[in-house]
């Protein structure tokens, strides 16, 4: 029996676009674009770093919106979308921090700078959402878990500006690049490559999130089927065990 894949024509197309797009980004970013005047080849890490940043925040925002929708309509669908989006967001966040650190060492001379607002606030935010993922692992009833997760997702989103604000204020110095998209200094091909990388990042985000969502959905179904099956079994036992029940009256008793 062939396993039932979690793909559909939409996700297959998204996947093809992602893979071809990644190839294009590697070609453009790795070979065709010129090294930067100041940073040399180090500039190329930007083609991963910036899309990762955008994927991270997209994940968190989609997660908060889906969580809000869950609390409003109590839709299991929205709950799982939130889980999938935030999980992909956290993974992108780790990638974001790692690429930043790798870039920081040769450029600033250190992997980590506590003086940098963006580094510190991103780390705190990713840790907040790691807590969210921990709540998702709780061995409790689906609805209880969904409610608790939704509250955390929304609380964490409220925290984004507070964390940002407090860290900015705490050390109002940054080594981080000013957003260099708009200052007109990027060469045309560099800018184009970055744009392609961002678009591909978002497509990859959608692709991964949909797949993750489907796996989560199937897991939930397995849980439900397992539970329903167990209940049916106990019921069957109870009805065939009537004679036995005379001798052991409460052995198969249904607690409800």
């Amino acid at each position: 029996m062939t396993p039932n894949p979690t793909s559909s024509s939409t996700t297959r197309n998204l996947g093809i676009v992602t893979i071809l797009g990644l190839g294009l980004v590697v070609l453009l970013g790795g070979f065709l674009t010129e090294p930067d005047d100041l940073m040399g080849d180090l500039v190329r890490i930007m083609y991963v770093h910036v899309p990762a940043a955008i994927m991270t925040y997209t994940g968190f925002v989609v997660g908060a919106i889906a969580s809000g929708f869950y609390l409003w309509k109590r839709s299991e669908f929205a709950d799982l979308v939130a889980h999938a989006a935030i999980e992909i967001g956290v993974i992108s966040g780790v990638l974001l921090i790692l690429t930043g650190a790798i870039w920081g060492e040769p450029t600033w001379g250190t992997y980590w700078s506590w003086q940098d607002v963006r580094l510190v606030s991103t780390l705190v935010l990713v840790l907040l959402y790691v807590g969210y993922l921990a709540i998702r692992q709780l061995p409790v009833d689906h609805h209880v878990r969904a409610r608790r997760s939704a509250v955390i997702a929304i609380a964490s989103t409220i925290m984004i500006p507070i964390v940002r604000y407090s860290v900015t204020w705490w050390s109002n110095r940054t080594l981080h690049q000013e957003a260099s998209l708009t200052d007109g200094k990027l060469e045309d091909l560099t800018l184009f490559t970055l744009m392609v990388a961002i678009v591909i990042g978002l497509v990859a985000f959608a692709w991964l999130t949909i797949h993750r969502f489907r796996v989560l959905w199937l897991e939930q179904q397995v849980d439900n089927v397992g539970l329903a099956g167990a209940i049916a079994e106990r019921r069957a036992e109870a009805s065939t065990g009537v004679e036995a029940a005379v001798t052991a009256p409460s052995a198969n008793g249904d607690p409800s």
Binding site: V124, L127, L128, V130, G131, A134, I135, I152, A155, M159, I162, V163, Y165, S166, V167
Partner: peptide
């Protein structure tokens, strides 16, 4: 702790 400490960072 893992839920609360990041929240209390500010």
């Amino acid at each position: 702790p893992i839920l609360l400490l990041p929240v209390l960072a500010p």
